[in-house]
């Protein structure tokens, strides 16, 4: 298996995974979406809420705010060795904001005060609720580690997906230009003797096959390389993309080895 990184930043990545199977690529995708635990506010104790939102809606908004998570420091509560909550599985965050009698104010994720300085909202400018004059919100949120398969608030990977690597072969082209006009992503261009496609724009091909239909002499064909995948993924900010991929692969490894253990005892 080979990996070719095309783009890599803190929040998003694009890479080519080659010499592997669709099953592995899909396993990686699913692990990034559902099997990497992250922190999210899970229980909310509302002491005062006179805003326009119901307590439940407020709690949902709080839950969906991504919290920066250190994978090694926290464990999901049901996997923790303690019985009813310890600093490794329960983190308390408070939110206490009051609008004055003169003007309202917006409550942002940056107003959340965390009991653990390492756990902070990944973005500070998420509007939670707009308070009108004299309205106030006082609450405590309890964050737990959880899995994306249980609720979207624990989903660290965003829009993880892949497609097969396109193979465009041009043979016997008469330079009529019909395929160039019909391509919705403009990846084909007229060369000196025949139609050409650059390596870079080839990755952008959506495998729609319109160029094949447009060609009257069947000179162009678009197929896919079934053992290579162009992966795109983003992180919600709770982990960097690097950490997310590594954690996802470790999850797959751990699951595979526990499967091996189970099989060996049969």
């Amino acid at each position: 298996m080979e990996i070719d990184v095309l783009e890599l930043s803190d929040r998003s990545a694009k890479f080519i995974l080659s010499n592997t199977t669709a099953a592995f690529a899909n396993g990686l995708r699913r692990a990034m979406l559902a099997d990497v635990p992250t922190l999210a506010i899970d229980d909310v104790n509302v002491y005062n809420n006179t805003s326009v939102l119901y307590d439940e809606q407020l709690a949902l908004r709080l839950g969906l705010i991504p919290l920066v998570t250190s994978f090694d420091d926290f464990v999901p509560q049901d996997e923790c060795t303690c019985e009813d909550g310890c600093p490794a599985c329960v983190i308390s965050l408070t939110l206490s904001v009051e609008a004055t009698a003169d003007e309202g104010r917006m409550v942002y994720s940056g107003d959340i005060v965390s009991s653990d300085p390492k756990v902070q909202p990944a973005e500070m400018n998420i509007p939670i609720i707009e308070l009108k004059v004299n309205q106030k919100v006082v609450l405590e949120g309890v964050a737990h580690m959880g899995y994306g398969r249980d609720h979207a608030k624990w989903q660290a990977g965003v829009a993880c997906g892949y497609k097969n690597l396109p193979i465009i072969t041009i043979d016997g082209c008469d330079r009529c230009g019909a395929c160039v006009n019909v391509c919705p992503r403009n990846i084909l261009c007229l060369g000196d003797k025949f139609v050409e496609v650059s390596d870079e724009s080839r990755l952008n091909c959506s495998l729609c096959g319109l160029c094949q239909d447009a060609c009257e002499i069947d000179a162009i064909s678009v197929t896919e390389n079934e053992s290579s995948f162009i992966f795109t993924m983003e992180s919600d900010g709770s982990y960097t993309v690097n950490e997310l991929i590594i954690n996802a692969v470790n999850t797959i490894k751990r699951k595979a080895s526990s499967m091996g253990d189970i099989l060996s005892t049969l």
Partner: peptide
Amino acid sequence: MFPVRCFTCGKV
């Protein structure tokens, strides 16, 4: 209030 995350992909 504006949704915190995209309903479909989950982006903040």
